[in-house]
Amino acid sequence: GLTEEQKQEIREAFDLFDTDGSGTIDAKELKVAMRALGFEPKKEEIKKMISEIDKDGSGTIDFEEFLTMMTA
């Protein structure tokens, strides 16, 4: 499992990506986040990433899903 410290770091990354503070990361926010990390993702790639992570089919990534992605 994760230490509380690791969870906190992932939470901070999540909050950075969640620019509108909605508690979820949408495609637009993910794209901005990827760019910040030096990637140039295409729209299809973003969609694919979200569909792989987005277990509940909401079209957005919540913290639990993000946590799973970061620790996979």
Rank of each mutant, 00 (worst) to 15 (best):
D26R: 08
K42Q: 10
T24F: 08
L2M: 07
M49K: 04
A72H: 13
T71Q: 10
F39S: 02
K28I: 06
D18K: 03
I50Y: 07
D18C: 10
I53S: 05
M34T: 01
Q6W: 13
T24K: 07
K55G: 08
E45N: 06
G21F: 05
G38H: 03
D56T: 10
E12F: 11
K7A: 07
E64N: 10
E40D: 15
M70L: 13
E64D: 09
G59H: 06
G1R: 11
E9A: 11
L37P: 04
D62T: 15
T71C: 12
T24A: 03
R11N: 01
M69P: 00
F39N: 02
L67R: 01
E29M: 14
S58P: 02
Q6H: 11
E29N: 12
K55Q: 09
D26F: 12
L30F: 06
G38T: 02
R11I: 02
G23A: 03
M69L: 12
S58E: 06
T71M: 11
M70I: 11
E9S: 13
I25K: 00
D15Y: 08
P41K: 06
G23D: 01
I46C: 13
S51R: 06
D18H: 03
T19E: 07
S22N: 08
K31D: 15
F39Q: 03
G1Y: 13
K55V: 06
I61D: 00
S22R: 08
E52D: 10
K43H: 12
K43I: 13
D20P: 01
D18I: 06
E65G: 14
D62H: 09
L2A: 03
D62E: 05
F14K: 00
E45A: 05
E64K: 06
S58G: 06
K28S: 09
D18N: 04
G38E: 02
K43T: 15
E64T: 08
T68W: 14
E65C: 14
G59I: 08
S22T: 08
I53W: 13
D54F: 12
T24N: 03
K42S: 15
K31R: 14
K43F: 13
T60D: 04
E12S: 12
D54K: 12
A36T: 05
T60S: 08
V32H: 15
K28F: 07
D54R: 06
D20E: 05
